[in-house]
Design a protein around this nucleic acid. Sequence first.
DNA 1: GGCCTTGTTAACATTTTGTAACAAGATTCT
DNA 2: AGAATCTTGTTACAAAATGTTAACAAGGCC
Lengths: 233, 233
Amino acid sequence: MTPAPHIVVIEDDPVTRTALGGYLEGFGYRVTACAGAEAAEKVLGQETPDLLIVDINLSGKDGLEITREQRARSEVGIILLSGRTDDVDRIVGLELGADDYVCKPFNRRELLARVKNLLRRTAAMRQLSRRMVNFAGFTFDTAARHVTGPDGATIQLTRAEYELLRTFVLNPGIVLSRDRLLASITHRQSLTGTRTVDVMVKRLRAKFGDDPKVSRIFGTSHGEGYVFTAPLS
Amino acid sequence: MTPAPHIVVIEDDPVTRTALGGYLEGFGYRVTACAGAEAAEKVLGQETPDLLIVDINLSGKDGLEITREQRARSEVGIILLSGRTDDVDRIVGLELGADDYVCKPFNRRELLARVKNLLRRTAAMRQLSRRMVNFAGFTFDTAARHVTGPDGATIQLTRAEYELLRTFVLNPGIVLSRDRLLASITHRQSLTGTRTVDVMVKRLRAKFGDDPKVSRIFGTSHGEGYVFTAPLS
DNA sequence: GGCCTTGTTAACATTTTGTAACAAGATTCT
DNA sequence: AGAATCTTGTTACAAAATGTTAACAAGGCC
């Protein structure tokens, strides 16, 4: 079961915005509608959507500017909307890396077809990016089961280390008890009174150059367990 | 050095066909121009191009029919050309899986931008569906089912070895469990407690001169399975 | 300070893997 | 069809990697 694709609509006209959002939601997509560049940047800073639908004529930062910025840092699918049938706008948009350009008034069914096609095209890349987790300069490849350091060096993880790191990354900022952590690395139940987790955390810390005294990644919660404290990006 | 992308243009109007072909060739693409569906099918039967540019209004089998057929058997990029600004044609084309739809008279620069964007999108898929795969100095011919070594010697692969290598190459950098690998060589399910996969991997390693202690190609993920670690090129 | 918790290290036990040898099955050739 | 040959599957065992435990030092908390 793959999650519903997430589409971000950036459109300042409230009528179009609501209509388009509702239409796409009706086809099972998760839609976030933004009225302008500021609201959009807030969303894009926290999430990596699967597709952007951007009006070119936004007040403030316009759609072309957003296209340029997004394309510089991701391969997210981008569809531009425009009220004008202007060749120049269209060509500039496409040359900036937008995947498509649709003129208003657009046919909803046409837009839906384009959305579907583009999501199909970007499926492989989205899968790739979902498998990578970035934090503190490291990149954790959940499929290859290893980590790439800030210097580009690969850090091999043992099975238990992998499971442990995975559990941490899936629960950022949450204190996890030793029992909980132990359950994620071994399949035996509740071996209380064991120091296994401590040793595994130490080994993880060693591989990430994380000092428990000034920990930035794996924090200790005295009497409780451990927390993953690095911000994910 | 990756080979120039191959674009097949299917267009019955000789003027447009020649102009478009020449224009694209000027940007370094390899172009094959076809006057109609018959000529195109001949080409498509022998080669798998990277992109199709198809006129909708062909005499005989039309562009929509070609789109349907191609999309059924490959993920090749498809751009439709049309003389009409007809919503219905456009929507039908897009719903059949065409990636783009451009109306004549089109702006060449716009078409070029669309071609570039689409090739960028399909790059990952083309990489995986290529017949020849290069890695670590070897060339794996997936159709002929053999490998050519750095010294030019051909290495014959048995059926199981071929299936195994194919599975590895289709999932580069991803740890594959023994069950997963076993399923790709035999069709029985989950023969746990068997060393069959280990033995097959050892035989593959032997043919590629890959030492498990300093493995460059077939890595071991202790407790999990094996990974294909050689960079594809 | 006393008590409990955590960090660290090293040794140990267990699991997993690499390899060889061999048996069984499939294919080719005569 | 039968023999020869090649491919595939299985088992056994040594070697390597990993997980676990024990022991002790260091640190936090009352």
